[in-house]
Nucleic acid binder design. Structure first.
Lengths: 160, 160
DNA sequence: GCTTTACCTCAAGTTGAGTTGAGGTTTTAT
DNA sequence: ATAAAACCTCAACTCAACTTGAGGTAAAGC
C-alpha cells in the first residue's frame, strides 16, 4: 500500500536500466511522468510494471513499437486497473504461445535437418523456411513480422 | 547430387534475400564465395545451408556475431561435413531448449503476475526479472547475453 | 553554507543489420 | 551485334534502441 513516489534515479536503479533510457522511453511515449517544482521527473509505482513488461517483451524479441501499441490498450488518463493489465497479459500470452510453438518446431526440425546431410532442396525444411517454419502456428497478436515478400522459385542452370 | 554452382542473384532469389545482403554477409565473414573470370561471385550449394541457418537463428534472436562464432566451429578450408553440421546443430538445440524454457516460464508467470494487481516488489517475478526469469534454465551455448550489471536494491524514501 | 550528487535539455554519436545509389563491367538474350 | 539484365565496388544512408557529452539547475548531506 505504500503510495510511493519515485525519482528517475530510483526507478533506474530499481529496474537496472540507465536514466537516459528512462528519458528515451518517455520520449517514445512508453512511460509517463510529471514534474516537481524543480522540473524533475516523478513517477507512480505503475512505471515499474511498465518497465518490467518492456524488458520482458524485449527479451523475447518484441520491438518498442509493438510494445507501445500494446500499451495503447491501457488507459492514458487513469492509472491502469488490474483488468487493464489482465487484458494485456492475455494478448501477451497468445504471442508467447506462438513463439514457443515456433521454437519447438524449429528445434525438432533441426534434429532431422541441419545435420542430416541431405541436399534435397525440395524437401528440407531448412532450405524452405517460409512454408515449413515461418508460417507455422503463431497467432500474431503483437508480432506480425510481415516478412517474406520475395518468394520466387528458380533453380540454377548448371548441373553435373 | 547436383553439383550446382550458384550466382548471387540465384542464391538471393532462392533464399528470399537481397543481393546486397549476400555482399554484406560475405563482408562479415558469414559466407564465402570465389570469383569467375569476370569477377562475379560464385557459390557452392553449401551457402544455402548457411543462409538457412542464419535466417533461422535470427528469427529466434541470435545476433550475426553469435552466428559467426557458431560458424567458426565449421571448417574454413574444406566443405563442412555432415558431422560438422551435426555438432553445430547440437549446440543450437541446447540454445533453443534454453529459450523455450525461458518463454514458458515467462508465459506461466504472466498468468499470475502481470494481471494480478499485486504491487509486492519483493515477491513479484515481473518486478524482479533478474532472479526469477533471466537466469532461469538456459544453458547459454550461443546466447550469453551477459546482461544485468546494475543490480542495486534500494527502495525510495517517501511513503503514505 | 557549501559541496557533492542528482537532475535537466538538446544535440550528436554508436551499434547492428542491412539498403540505396552512383558509376562502371559482364553475361545473356534476341 | 547490340540491348537488357545481372553483376561489380565503394561510400553513404537508414532505422531501432540507446548512450555520451556539454553546459547548466536542483536537492541532499555534512
Amino acid at each position: 500500500m505504500a503510495e510511493t513516489i519515485w525519482s528517475v534515479g530510483k526507478v533506474a536503479k530499481r529496474c537496472g536500466i540507465n536514466v537516459s533510457t528512462l528519458h528515451f522511453y518517455e520520449q517514445q511515449g512508453l512511460i509517463h511522468s510529471w514534474r516537481n517544482e524543480g522540473n524533475q521527473r516523478r513517477y507512480k509505482p505503475e512505471v515499474l510494471r511498465r518497465i518490467s513488461v518492456i524488458k520482458a517483451a524485449q527479451r523475447v524479441g518484441v520491438s518498442l513499437e509493438e510494445i507501445k501499441q500494446a500499451f495503447e490498450s491501457l488507459p492514458n488518463n487513469r492509472t491502469p486497473t488490474v483488468e487493464d493489465w489482465q487484458q494485456l497479459s492475455k494478448n501477451w500470452q497468445q504471442m508467447l504461445d506462438g513463439r514457443i510453438a515456433y521454437l519447438q518446431k524449429l528445434r525438432d526440425n533441426l534434429a532431422g535437418c541441419i545435420g542430416c546431410g541431405c541436399l534435397s532442396m525440395t524437401n528440407c525444411p531448412l532450405y524452405n523456411p517460409d512454408d515449413k517454419l515461418a508460417k507455422s502456428g503463431s497467432g500474431p497478436v503483437l508480432l506480425d513480422q510481415a516478412e517474406q515478400k520475395a518468394r520466387a522459385q528458380q533453380e540454377p542452370s548448371a548441373s553435373s
